[in-house]
Simulated scan of single mutants.
Amino acid sequence: MKLETRVMRSIARRHSIVILRSELAALGSPAQLSRVLSTLVKSKRLVRVSVGIYAKTRLNKFTNELAPAAPFETIAAQVFKKLKIDVAPGELARDYNASKTTQVPMLAVVNTGGRRITRKIQVGSKTVTYERRSVNQRKERQP
């Protein structure tokens, strides 16, 4: 059986939309896996989200083209969960959820606490932006 067939079967059996390269590592050598994943991305059966992170696609019933199988926010949340990174909504989203403002946040901003993250998570033109502790939290910690 071809490696591409085994990889697609493994991906189809997974409930998660996000697939890590490390989850597929047992199926073949790193070079073979790179070639197969590259082929799947070019054929739009997978979407590359970040280095070593891919998302499943499904047929969009309106355009009849393959598109990510979930909204960007869901994909980003699953990525952070799989990477075991604790994040919270950004300051703008917190203000909106607490009814402090009526402006809906348009950007995907997450608060990483004190943790510094540089991983770029992107699907199409949407990208996750990181914010660390707010200015008020920094002032409270200083003596």
Rank of each mutant, 00 (worst) to 15 (best):
E23K: 07
S29E: 04
Q103K: 04
R35W: 00
R133N: 00
Q122H: 08
D95L: 06
T102W: 03
V110T: 05
Q122M: 14
Q142C: 12
S50E: 10
A88M: 11
R21C: 04
L46R: 13
D95Q: 04
L37W: 04
E73S: 05
K56N: 10
N64F: 03
T101M: 00
T74M: 07
V49I: 13
A31P: 01
V47T: 12
R94N: 09
N136A: 02
K139T: 10
A88Q: 12
A108E: 08
F80D: 00
K139N: 08
T5M: 13
K100C: 14
H15A: 12
I53N: 01
L24H: 08
R94Q: 10
K81D: 06
T127F: 08
S38R: 13
E4R: 11
R119S: 13
R133D: 09
E65V: 10
F62E: 15
A31N: 11
Y96W: 07
A25M: 09
T102D: 07
R119G: 03
A76H: 07
I117N: 04
V110K: 08
K120M: 07
V7M: 06
Q78E: 15
N60R: 02
R116S: 12
T5V: 14
R115I: 14
Y130I: 13
R9V: 07
L40G: 06
E91W: 06
Q78T: 02
L27S: 03
V47L: 08
L83E: 04
K84Q: 03
A69L: 09
S22H: 01
V104P: 03
F62C: 05
T118R: 15
P89K: 08
V87N: 00
S10R: 10
L24W: 08
M8S: 10
G52Y: 06
Q122R: 13
S50K: 11
T102N: 06
V49L: 08
V41I: 13
D86N: 10
A67L: 04
V7N: 00
A25E: 14
V47A: 02
K61V: 12
E4G: 05
P143G: 09
S134Y: 10
A108G: 02
R132G: 11
N111D: 13
R13H: 12
R45H: 11
P68H: 14
P68K: 08
I75H: 06
V109A: 06
T112F: 02
K139W: 02
I85T: 00
E73A: 07
A12D: 06
A31D: 15
R6E: 15
T39Q: 09
K44A: 05
L107D: 15
A26E: 09
R9E: 11
G52R: 14
F62G: 13
E73W: 00
G124W: 02
A98K: 01
I85F: 06
E23V: 01
E65K: 12
T127A: 06
S34T: 12
N60Q: 02
A26Q: 14
R116W: 03
L20Y: 03
Q137H: 03
S10I: 04
T118K: 12
R119K: 10
